[in-house]
Simulated scan of single mutants.
Amino acid sequence: MDLVQLTGVHRRYGSGGNAVLALDGVTIGFPAGSFTAVMGPSGSGKSTLLQCAAGLDRPTSGSVRLAGTELTELSETGLTLLRRDRIGFVFQAFNLLPALTAEQNVELPLRLAGRRPGSGEVRAMLAAVGLADRRRNRPAELSGGQQQRVAIARALVTRPEVLFADEPTGALDSTTGREVLGLLRGLADRHGQTIVMVTHDPVAAAHADRVVFLADGRPVDELARPTARSVAARMTGLEAVRPC
């Protein structure tokens, strides 16, 4: 069953002759418990797709549903509450508050929601991402990979139904990036976490259950059980047919 479902989604920016069609009638689903990578050439609509699916941007037309909730019908307040309580976000920039410790950064979403973190709740989440012994360190005292792990723990502390990740390893070296991707893979395998990840990296995409390829604002191909080699070959094919 699809946890996230987009149906006939268009997203147009601007108007008249200056209008840009970022998404062109996208219909796609993301099954519960799956790990999906979204790829495509520059300007294909990857980030716009993620933003519309996550309720960060409103489509011009079409339907976006999360576990039966129609996002396009929600008010701005309703969208804010949905994003806070039911969706997790991880981005290329770690977006940690430098004055707070790792533990304080992770508990921040709970405090913003008016919840008092339960005893051991935040520490357990840090332990799950392998940082139990770094909870009192501030971001400047952590490596890039450790900072991204803190960001992942922060995204998961509210127990979201879906985790959206936009180039989560883009600021990391290859070794650290593989460690973070292994963590995401483990979340899907061991905890049934639904993950939708935008990436340009075939190695990153190979950690997913399937890869969805976009071109010109539309899904044009899918690849199940991807390998870095098969993903790179599909991307090469998409780039080759792009107009000059």
Rank of each mutant, 00 (worst) to 15 (best):
P109D: 02
A127D: 15
Q92D: 08
V129F: 04
L112M: 15
Q92E: 11
G130I: 09
L74A: 06
Q104Y: 01
A99R: 14
L126V: 02
S119V: 11
S143L: 10
P139K: 02
E121S: 01
V90H: 10
D133S: 11
L100Y: 14
E107Y: 02
D133H: 12
A132S: 13
L96S: 03
L97K: 02
S75V: 08
Q104I: 00
G118C: 10
L74I: 01
V122A: 06
E70A: 14
R111E: 14
D133F: 07
T80L: 05
L71N: 06
D133C: 03
T77R: 14
L112R: 10
L131Y: 03
R138T: 02
A113W: 07
L82Y: 05
E103P: 00
Q104V: 01
R134E: 07
R111C: 05
E76V: 01
M125F: 01
D85P: 01
F94R: 00
E141M: 13
L97F: 12
L108M: 15
D133I: 06
A99I: 12
R84I: 07
R84A: 14
A113R: 12
L112Y: 13
T77F: 05
A124Y: 00
F89I: 05
L71F: 11
F94L: 00
T69W: 04
T72W: 02
R138Y: 01
A102I: 13
N105M: 09
E73F: 00
A140E: 12
L82D: 12
R115G: 07
A127H: 12
F89P: 04
F91V: 05
V106R: 04
L79K: 09
A99F: 13
E107G: 01
R111Y: 01
R115H: 12
E141I: 00
P117N: 06
A93Q: 15
N105H: 07
A132G: 13
A93F: 14
M125P: 01
E70Q: 13
L96R: 07
G120W: 02
L126S: 07
L131H: 03
T72G: 13
G114T: 09
G78A: 04
E121D: 08
L100M: 14
L79W: 09
G118N: 10
L79C: 10
T101N: 03
E76S: 13
R134S: 13
S119N: 12
R136P: 00
R115P: 04
T80K: 03
L100T: 02
L81Y: 06
F91A: 10
F91E: 10
S75I: 05
A102W: 08
R86F: 06
N95I: 06
T69P: 04
L71E: 04
L82S: 09
T69Y: 02
R115T: 11
